[in-house]
Design a protein around this nucleic acid. Structure first.
Lengths: 195, 195
DNA sequence: ATGGCCATGTAAACGGTTACATGATTGG
DNA sequence: CCAATCATGTAACCGTTTACATGGCCAT
């Protein structure tokens, strides 16, 4: 039911069409949740059936018509109930860590490559996070200042934890590279800064 | 297919029954992956059909008989191919962070409770991690020293990143508590160390 | 006698992914 | 002219979770 909560959450900010929500997911909620369009549309219909949201059609010209959704009182109550409930258990599926668990099977060079790729991905995510943070600082005029407070903290937390993960990966890469140098010792001499 | 890879991984260490694997998941792989028994048994049968593993029945007395699985060459090749392939994308579903994203909706006291609970859970996980690390240091006699190296690094990485997350949550709790104090100002006076 | 360990499963439901379909408008 | 944007969906599939079933052994 996490997608349902995510949808209630974004609709609590303002009424939106499925398409708006998808864009919202792609840019703002992106660090935190994601879903395919088809899943969003299906879930919205289902939520309307359960009276968590209501919709009306909006006629448009030059563009396809759209169906705009708004949260009901019942929907808001459901959202808040979730927010107040005990948090989901942390950590149960971490494909990347699982992979490292068995990484001893393959060559150090391959391991180095896998880790480097992940390092680059994290750096890219951190860049996006830092952009987002700048964006937030521009936007002081919001309908929802309480929301902004949390969203800023969230991005900062994201930066903090991802930086920690980066540090760890970098230290692993260092260890692995010194092992490689030690291994083929003088055979392959001055090769200290390939990245 | 992540469960499949996890199963190939544990079976690459030694041959095991479904039940052994479940216990192995509960204790060692626990930080990294988890699965219900029913899913494990089903997946094992399916993997045998695909010739990634083979099994034989082991007669036991005093205990129910069991089916013990062993990885085939094809299974090992599949495992290694996965290990060498680009890593799964980081971060796409984080229910706890998503919750924080919308946390502005509820009272600070409720938010404090939710965060405190998570903080306690992380502390508990860190305690388990630290135990595991001690356990590993005792066990120098292993059939798979290369595996041990990675598993130790993995736990250390886990400690590192979870500690970072803890720091962040603690700082949030600090901020929230000072806000609460500021809010009902002198009304509720000496209330500085409820935890 | 009660509950935990050993051991393996079936069945149904749920949540999420992937592939595909449609079609008009706008900007480079 | 081509690609992107706007807009909504269907269908099939896959992986995971949950509930339930069975039954002997052993220790408290």
């Amino acid at each position: 039911m996490s997608l349902r909560n995510a949808l209630l959450g974004v609709l609590s900010l303002r009424e939106m069409s499925g398409y708006d929500i998808k864009r919202s997911f792609d840019h703002a909620v992106h660090f935190v949740w994601n879903a395919a369009d088809s899943q969003i549309y299906r879930e919205l219909r289902d939520m309307e059936k359960h009276e968590l949201i209501v919709s009306h059609l909006v006629q448009q010209d030059g563009k396809p018509n759209k169906r705009v959704y708004r949260v009901t009182e019942h929907g808001l109550a459901t959202l808040d109930e979730w927010l107040r409930s005990p948090a989901e258990a942390p950590f149960d599926k971490e494909p990347f860590l699982m992979r490292l668990f068995f990484m001893g099977r393959i060559d150090r060079d391959d391991a180095i490559r896998v880790l480097s790729e992940r390092r680059d991905e994290i750096r890219a995510l951190l860049a996006v996070a830092s952009d987002r943070l700048e964006m937030y600082s521009d936007l002081s005029r919001t309908e929802h200042p309480e929301m902004l407070w949390w969203q800023v903290r969230l991005i900062k937390g994201f930066e903090h934890t991802q930086t920690a993960q980066l540090e760890w990966i970098d230290s692993l890469l260092d260890e692995l590279r010194t092992q490689v140098e030690r291994d083929h010792g003088t055979e392959v001499p001055g090769l200290m800064s390939e990245d």
